[in-house]
Design a protein around this nucleic acid. Sequence first.
DNA 1: TGTACATCAGTGAACGCGCGTTCACTGATGTAC
DNA 2: TGTACATCAGTGAACGCGCGTTCACTGATGTAC
Lengths: 207, 207
Amino acid sequence: MSNKTEEKRAELRMRLIDVAEAQIAARGLGGLKAREVTAEAGCALGALYNAVQDLDTLVLHVNSRTLARLGAALHAACQGAGEAPEDVLQALAAGYVAFARENRRLWSALFEHRLPEGVETPDWHKRDHAVLIEEIIAPLAHLRPDLAGEALIMRARTTFAAVHGVVQLALQGRFVGVPEESLADEVAALVSAMTRGTHLLRAGTGE
Amino acid sequence: MSNKTEEKRAELRMRLIDVAEAQIAARGLGGLKAREVTAEAGCALGALYNAVQDLDTLVLHVNSRTLARLGAALHAACQGAGEAPEDVLQALAAGYVAFARENRRLWSALFEHRLPEGVETPDWHKRDHAVLIEEIIAPLAHLRPDLAGEALIMRARTTFAAVHGVVQLALQGRFVGVPEESLADEVAALVSAMTRGTHLLRAGTGE
DNA sequence: TGTACATCAGTGAACGCGCGTTCACTGATGTAC
DNA sequence: TGTACATCAGTGAACGCGCGTTCACTGATGTAC
């Protein structure tokens, strides 16, 4: 059933994603309920399952959006930074901290959400995660000319994960996390430590 | 009601913690059910609430145990390492990776578990988290004689969180995580990067 | 040592709630002639 | 253009399941005399 019908369908799907995004932002991933999303979107409970496969898929759509916004934020952070790879990495890390703080629950949802056992993440969503490491690769390659290809990508992932770990434990308010006031400074110190040694020693023996 | 009664009570509590530990190890934190714990422990459902405040408290007991074991593992890792602070930190990180891999689900439970909104973590359990950073402090102090007191502790937390982040994303099997085969190497590279710059430059300007 | 009574660990059925998903139905929208 | 019919988005009550916690009850253990 063509055009107009398909249009309305897509419209409802968008509306549902909008509402789901707002509700996750307000109450966290655990606070997202099929009944509340549809109520606020102004449709019946069952309509959700016509517009979208299920609630998990709806979450994936929200997460894809969040990743896109995060990607844009990180890209913008790079633009504002100097040329030196250390500066770019510092700007990226600072941008990540800022985004996480300003989008706490949506950012958390990125890492909290799990598909039911045995369900594979669809490819269209997997690809969206690339933004997390894309901008790291170039400056890292400058600092580590000895790394290339797969090894470079691995190191970019590791660099991201290290910063992410500090941010996550801090914003989670957990025991070992640093207090939120110190977060920006500590992340800067971490990035500084990670980048400082490398260009002095170049590719020495071992690491 | 003294002695013998209290003894049996403590015995049941122990049995429940044992079983809960085994079930979390087998099925993950989400797979822990009051009915299954009590069934396997050989008592009635209601007995759980006599032995222990509630299911969350039971999880805290299991987590305390896991932390104690982790602390012992990290302490042992230090013993086997050389004198140089870099080596100690490498040994600690390697020990952490090994423990996480060998105790995946119990280790995950440490960071997955959340008390219901508004419930404070009891002090007896909070204290147990100290093992995560205790052993880091001394070697870090050697590398960074400019840091002391609160600042040193913060940096130890940050160091832990960075390593933890890499391990967590990898073992979670998530998008940006490194594959498990590369985990040990990547963590070693991270620690190497974090420690290498510092003692060359000592306390320079800024970080 | 023996008897009457009190306590409280242990029992498990029942409570209460939450919530994702389905499904028989309706009515608006589109197609065929 | 008008009429008969088909399709399918949208509806919301009902299904089905899971599960932590409570509570009236019992019986074993302990205390008092």
